[in-house]
Amino acid sequence: MSFLTTIFNIAIVIMSISMLLTLVRFIKGPSLPDRVISLDVFSANLLAVLAIYSIISEQKAYLNVALSISLVAFVGTMTFAYYLVQKRNKHQEND
């Protein structure tokens, strides 16, 4: 059984590395949509880490947290896109 736990830990380490890489894009990103997309990928990584962690710690309640994270991330992305379009429209009216 410890063999399986090792595999799950390896998967969590891989996904932590990918979260770090996503954060690099978040800091570096030249434009605002780049940052939005990197946050989206970050939250998907977080969801997967929670799902695997629920196996290791044997708590099924983490899956509910994963479900709500998937919903909240979508709302965040939508709001950012709406904000970008609105900001540009306002800018155009002022010109």
Binding site: S31, L32, P33, V36, I37, D40, A44, L47, L63, N64, A66, L67, S70, L71, F74, T77, M78, F80, A81, Y82, L84, V85, K87, R88
Partner: peptide, 29 residues
């Protein structure tokens, strides 16, 4: 529960990508 999450992701993720890229075209990235 897991099928619900997978269904949400399949529905939502292309939609989010489409909306953000449309905003990027409008703001001239």
């Amino acid at each position: 529960e897991i099928f619900a999450i997978i269904f949400f992701i399949y529905l939502i993720s292309p939609l989010a990508a489409h909306i953000v890229s449309r905003a990027a075209v409008i703001t001239k990235v």
